[in-house]
């Protein structure tokens, strides 16, 4: 398993570098904005959460593409025919996801630390909890894509299907519900952002993402056991 992880992370370090560059540039921009226009922390806070999500999205971009590339060149067949059991293969995919999200999370926390130099409110227990839950949510959505990558032999198609189903089926209703509960109408995200500081929403999101990780571990395992991966 170590070999697969080593090879995969080695080949895709450019995504980590890109996420790092985005984090640095984005944080610099936000810091500049905050120091220049101190009375607009709300706008910058919203922008900063969006920026952290972008960093997470960039850093996770390689996961589905990597699985697709390994399937297309039949390296997955070589590993499954070699010393790797199906359970180990799925576990290695999970580790890739979790390690990547972990690195993304660390980047986001460092971004928050830097921003806290300009405004302490950018790095609190609340902001750390929020980014942890958002990171695990993003990671779990990326995790769900894997069985579809095997079926479609394409990370793009799989991401599109999952994006559409989850986007319209789960995320949008959650956003609307948050706005209804908070009676916020400024934007689709405003209710959600307000409720993010509420412990219950964080717990619900954490619970959902944990459940998705567990359920789709077994979904992916069953898909690999079914055969015809490559």
């Amino acid at each position: 398993m170590k070999g697969i992880l080593y090879g995969n992370f080695l080949l895709n370090k450019k995504w980590f570098i890109a996420a790092g560059i985005t984090a640095v540039l984005g944080t610099a921009f936000c810091a500049f904005f905050v120091s220049l226009v101190p009375n607009n922390e709300g706008v910058v806070a919203t922008l900063f959460i969006g920026l952290q999500l972008v960093v997470l999205a960039i850093i996770m971009e390689w996961l589905g593409r990597n699985l697709e590339a390994n399937i297309k060149c039949r390296f997955t067949d070589i590993t499954l025919a070699g010393g790797i059991s199906r359970n180990m293969f799925v576990t290695s995919e999970l580790l890739k996801n979790v390690i990547t999200i972990g690195i993304g999370l660390v980047m986001c926390i460092i971004m928050q630390l830097v921003m806290s130099v300009f405004d302490r409110r950018f790095f609190t227990l609340e902001t750390v909890k929020i980014i942890m839950v958002l990171a695990s949510s993003c990671g779990s959505i990326e995790w769900i894509v894997n069985p579809f990558v095997i079926d479609f032999k394409s990370a793009e198609k799989a991401g599109l299907v999952v994006g559409l189903v989850f986007g319209f089926g789960l995320v949008l209703p959650i956003m609307v519900l948050c706005n209804v509960l908070t009676e916020e109408t400024e934007s689709l995200l405003s209710g959600f952002i307000t409720l993010l500081s509420n412990g219950w929403l964080l717990l619900i999101l954490l619970g959902i993402s944990t459940a998705l990780y567990v359920i789709f571990y077994f979904v992916l395992l069953e898909r690999v056991k079914k055969g015809d991966v490559c």
Binding site: M1, G7, C73, F75, G83
Partner: peptide, 28 residues
């Protein structure tokens, strides 16, 4: 069991040195 498929079955951006490390992690 040693397996050889038709064509390249390893990630195309790897080198021989890197493949050695990968395979060391796959085969005991």
């Amino acid at each position: 069991i040693g397996v050889v498929f038709d064509g390249l079955s390893f990630p195309e951006n790897l080198t021989v040195r890197q493949l050695d490390k990968v395979m060391r992690g796959i085969y005991k």
